[in-house]
Design a protein around this nucleic acid. Structure first.
Ligand SMILES: [Mn+2]
Ligand SMILES: [Mn+2]
Ligand SMILES: [Mn+2]
Ligand SMILES: [Mn+2]
Lengths: 154, 154
DNA sequence: ACACAGTTTTAGCCGAGGCTACACTTGCGG
DNA sequence: CCGCAAGTGTAGCCTCGGCTAAAACTGTGT
């Protein structure tokens, strides 16, 4: 019975797994996840078009402009972006910082997946979700691995 | 200006990133994420205690028993678990299958992070979030890497 | 100057996933 | 067999993140 032994293997691996509040951390990650994607997108769109409007973000994320509008209002309250009525969306100092660290992390995760041998499209998709759950320590390991793989292939 | 050049590097990496609907995939991942964690936990608890009750899950996830109750009702409607009033929670055939594949994926991601050099506690925490965003292709690469690292160290 | 198209905002709906307070079952120990 | 603690369920609240429909604003071309 191959299945039975696999089951036992799983059990033994997961039993050793330190279970101290890891679900709380994951829930916390999710609460900032959308904000991270938004500030990243705002930064990208400003660089690409010179400004970022509600409709740009709606198209970018493939959601309705109404959804964007309410999200932007939340993130304004949180201090990451600023907007005047009917005006473009800009990043605050904090927002810029968050965007930069998020983009750095996102880029590292993406390049890491490429270095691991994952194809570009899959790497892009997976990185979009994975990035928000990567701790500084893991990120550092990923960066190191990607750099190493890069230098070898050159 | 170190910062300026880093910024340009980020831009060039992310510009090449295939952006076809990756946010939709991430949103889809999130909609099944909790279900995956629940069936995993139910399987674990049944193995450990012989049965799984609402309070076990509440303690496991560190949420209120009410939250668990409603989630279990949702997952019963979805066909992953069964419960009778005031009775224990069991997995359906589908639920058992989902639990097995989720646990397998979770274990691989965890061992992969260990192989990458991440410490146990951090690996456990990060794996809890990352697991839900790892595609079959990426999972296969991670498994391969973990196996390789394991055989080297032996 | 003004109409009209495009953009933004508001109103109001939904489900998921968190909570507290309270009500109801169940299973024991005395 | 009864009472009480622990477990389970219900009622009702919240925020987030999705939607459609409709109203309000802006900016451009004639
Ligand atoms: Mn990102
Ligand atoms: Mn993302
Ligand atoms: Mn899991
Ligand atoms: Mn998880």
């Amino acid at each position: 019975m191959k299945n039975k032994s696999f089951l036992r293997a799983c059990v033994s691996v997961m039993a050793k797994l330190p279970k101290v509040n890891r679900h709380q951390r994951t829930r916390a990650d999710h609460s900032t996840e959308l904000a991270e994607d938004y500030v990243e997108a705002v930064a990208e769109l400003i660089e690409a078009h010179g400004s970022c409007r509600v409709t740009d973000l709606a198209e970018y994320f493939d959601v309705s402009h109404v959804t964007v509008n309410r999200a932007v209002a939340r993130f304004q309250r949180a201090g990451w972006v600023t907007t005047k009525p009917y005006g473009p969306i800009e990043l605050t100092k904090q927002g810029t910082q968050l965007a930069e660290s998020s983009r750095r992390r996102h880029a590292i995760v993406y390049q890491f997946l490429l270095a691991l041998g994952v194809d570009e499209k899959t790497a892009a998709t997976d990185a979009e979700g994975i990035e928000h759950h990567v701790s500084p320590e893991t990120l550092q390991r990923m960066e190191q691995f990607a750099k190493q793989a890069n230098s070898k292939s050159r």
